[in-house]
């Protein structure tokens, strides 16, 4: 099977994730979209590892997973806290930086 197809899938996933981050308001969905983008890049890394015939890309993919796991923990905690205090998980509601 042509390795380029995996890259197309990766690009598709990343685009879906990026659009989701920009257009969706629900923090959980935004968060999931971020995960989607991370995993799209993971897929690209692994694909490139396969194409180049070495393990560099796979190693990076593990790193990304570790970082993503940490990010999920911190990010979910923040979202839960915001939801508790504001009774809303909409990212547009939390626009206090401007004001």
């Amino acid at each position: 099977m042509n390795a380029a197809n995996y890259l197309y899938v990766s690009a598709l996933l990343f685009s879906i994730g990026a659009i989701g981050v920009v257009v969706r308001r629900n923090a959980i969905v935004v968060f999931m979209c971020i995960e989607l983008m991370l995993n799209a890049s993971n897929l690209a890394f692994v694909t490139f590892a396969r194409i180049n015939g070495n393990l560099d890309g796979q190693v990076i993919a593990f790193f990304t997973m570790v970082v993503a796991a940490c990010e999920v923990v911190v990010g979910l905690a923040i979202i839960v806290t915001i939801y508790r205090s504001r009774r809303s998980a909409s990212v547009d509601d939390a626009s206090l930086l401007k004001r």
Partner: peptide
């Protein structure tokens, strides 16, 4: 450009 909306920042990053 500093709207305070996270999504617009994400848009700019993108």
């Amino acid at each position: 450009t500093q709207t305070g909306f996270v999504r617009s920042y994400a848009m700019w990053i993108l």
